[in-house]
Simulated scan of single mutants.
Amino acid sequence: MNEVKKLAAVWPFLTVVLTAFLFGGFALFYIRDHMPEQPPDMAVFAQSTPQSAQSQIVTVDVRKNGFFPNHIEVQAGTPVLLNFKKEKGISCIRDVASLDLDMNVYLKKGDNYYTLDNLQPGNYEFHCGMYMYSGTVTVK
């Protein structure tokens, strides 16, 4: 009987704490998903517009579940203008990087152009910053 009285005295406090915790959690997720993206420190931004009409232009859609297409074929000897097109500002994929291509580019919403010059024939890999999604560039 004494334990029931203790529980009855603490119950309103536990209800308020649990409710505040749940609302706080939902608020944090809402705020996180609706905040504008901030570029990381030392970010390299892609070009906003293409520079050369002599380039091979390839558009890669950046979606929440990867790069589409994730395999690109280009010809050697001609600069390649990659356009990483990001439809939504907030997604898991915030940047694209490649050790093979010496590329590390922060992606903003919309068109993100990056020029690859002097590519030798071969296969080059690229990936998102978290290494969850990847793709390849094949130069023939």
Rank of each mutant, 00 (worst) to 15 (best):
L81K: 13
F68N: 09
L28Q: 12
F68V: 11
Y113R: 05
R32L: 14
Y124H: 01
V137K: 03
G129A: 00
Y106E: 05
L107Q: 09
K85S: 01
G66D: 09
I93M: 03
E73H: 09
T19V: 13
G89R: 15
S55L: 05
T138L: 05
T49F: 12
E73S: 10
Y114D: 05
G135M: 02
N2K: 11
R63I: 12
R32H: 14
F21G: 07
S91G: 13
D33H: 15
P40Q: 02
D41K: 10
T49H: 08
D95L: 15
P36H: 09
N118P: 06
I57N: 15
T59W: 12
V17I: 11
H127N: 13
P121G: 01
R94H: 09
V105L: 05
V10W: 00
I93E: 05
N123H: 08
L107F: 12
L107G: 07
I57A: 15
Y30W: 15
M103D: 04
P121A: 02
G25W: 11
E37K: 14
A43D: 02
M132V: 08
A53V: 00
K88T: 00
T136C: 02
F68S: 09
Q56N: 02
E3C: 04
E37D: 11
M35R: 15
P39R: 09
Q75A: 13
L28E: 01
E73Q: 11
H34A: 11
R94Y: 07
F84E: 03
L116S: 03
G122W: 10
S52Y: 04
Q54Y: 04
A97S: 07
S98F: 10
N83E: 05
N123F: 09
L14V: 15
G89M: 13
P50Y: 00
G24V: 03
A9E: 00
D33R: 15
P69M: 04
S55I: 06
K109M: 06
Y30Q: 14
N112E: 09
Q54D: 04
V16Y: 13
L18P: 10
L18S: 13
K140D: 05
I90R: 14
D95R: 14
G122D: 02
L107W: 11
V137C: 02
P79W: 00
F29H: 06
G66Y: 12
L82W: 12
R94N: 04
E3T: 01
S52T: 04
W11R: 15
P79I: 00
V137P: 05
N112K: 10
N112S: 09
E3S: 06
I72Y: 02
F21M: 11
Y131W: 15
P12K: 04
S134K: 08
F13H: 13
D61A: 10
S98P: 12
